[in-house]
Design a binder for these strands. Structure first.
Length: 310
DNA sequence: CCCCAGGTCAGAC
DNA sequence: GTCTGACATGGG
């Protein structure tokens, strides 16, 4: 699925005045510079949507599919380095969503106090476009876990069951995220040894349904959001919240609005005077109140809440 | 000892 | 249909 076909508003336009990215090779490292404005790389990579980015000095290291990547934020650009030739960089730009015009998305948010505060607290926060299986599996592992621990579990899972990916000479090894096929070949006890506890059965069960094509993740992008959600809800360990995370972070459905404990706190506190509100009412409120890019607004509220209340 | 973490599920009404 | 407790594990 592509962003353009799904977005109907002004936000479909690419970032204005964006020149073609420049690429180069340097000492076995391949570089590409992506011009972009209003992109807070650190906030984006640590906002609880992806779990594999590590801060190494001034830059961020991780893997996108089977490619090792190092990212560094500059004034009006992101510098990316890879171990292998980058090609045209479409895979990278798709992941980073750097051509999305952030300001036109922010312009669709409701003009109320809470949203103004959230946007000003996390300006430059973006939504990534992740691989569906990695995103799904990661969020199956996320339930009632803190983000630091999710990162730990995912790292263990990749080290043990992922495949080594090419890294720069002398660099420590990096691993791909294990495929569904690989994970259903694991015993549940092997998965548990990655400290995922009761989530092991969910992960294995979901991996089996994906590997046996009971659910075809590559077909969800063609569906309407409700249909795609119903499909994800078939998977063990996947309820409304995790389904919405995948719809938002992997498929880019802009109306997907995952409500976790933090977003619930934010909605209650900022819009319902701190009162207890049934989840389904919050769900309806968020769908009606936050506009065509509600999912983006959700990510701002989530990060705003976490940042203001350590 | 307590409570909580980017929840989901089965079993009770 | 809604509500409750169990589910592993680690941090504060």
């Amino acid at each position: 699925m592509n962003w353009e076909t799904r977005m109907s508003s002004a936000a479909a336009r690419p970032e204005r005045c964006t020149p073609e990215p420049v690429s180069a090779t340097l000492a076995g490292l391949h570089q590409i510079r992506l011009p972009v404005q209003h992109y807070d790389l650190a906030t984006t990579l640590t906002s609880g949507q992806a779990f594999r980015w590590k801060l190494c000095g001034e830059s961020w290291e991780g893997a996108i599919d089977r490619r090792w990547v190092r990212l560094a934020a500059a004034e009006d650009s992101i510098l990316a380095e890879t171990a292998e030739p980058i090609g045209n960089g479409a895979w990278l730009e798709n992941y980073l969503q750097n051509r999305v015009d952030l300001e036109s998305i922010l312009a669709t948010f409701p003009d109320d106090g809470p949203m103004r505060a959230a946007v000003s607290a996390c300006f430059g926060l973006r939504l990534l476009r992740q691989d569906p299986w990695e995103c799904l599996a990661s969020f199956i592992l996320s339930s009632t876990k803190q983000i630091v621990q999710i990162e730990q579990i995912v790292a263990l899972l990749c080290e043990r069951f992922g495949e080594p990916v090419p890294v720069p000479p002398g660099h420590s090894p990096a691993y791909s995220f294990p495929t569904a096929d690989r994970l259903c070949a694991c015993a549940e006890s092997e998965l548990r040894s990655c400290k995922m506890g009761f989530r092991a059965a969910y992960l294995k069960g979901s991996a089996e349904m994906i590997a046996s094509s009971v659910i075809d993740l590559s077909k969800l992008s063609a569906l309407e959001i409700g249909e795609a959600r119903e499909s994800l809800l078939q998977l063990p360990g996947v309820g409304r919240k995790i389904a919405d995370c995948v719809l938002l972070f992997a498929y880019g459905f802009p109306k997907a609005f995952p409500i976790d404990v933090w977003v619930m706190k934010a909605l209650r506190r900022l819009y319902f005077r701190g009162r207890r509100v049934p989840l389904r009412r919050l769900q309806r409120f968020s769908d009606e109140h936050f506009g065509p890019f509600a999912g983006y607004a959700q990510q701002y509220l989530f990060h705003y809440m976490r940042r203001s209340e350590p």
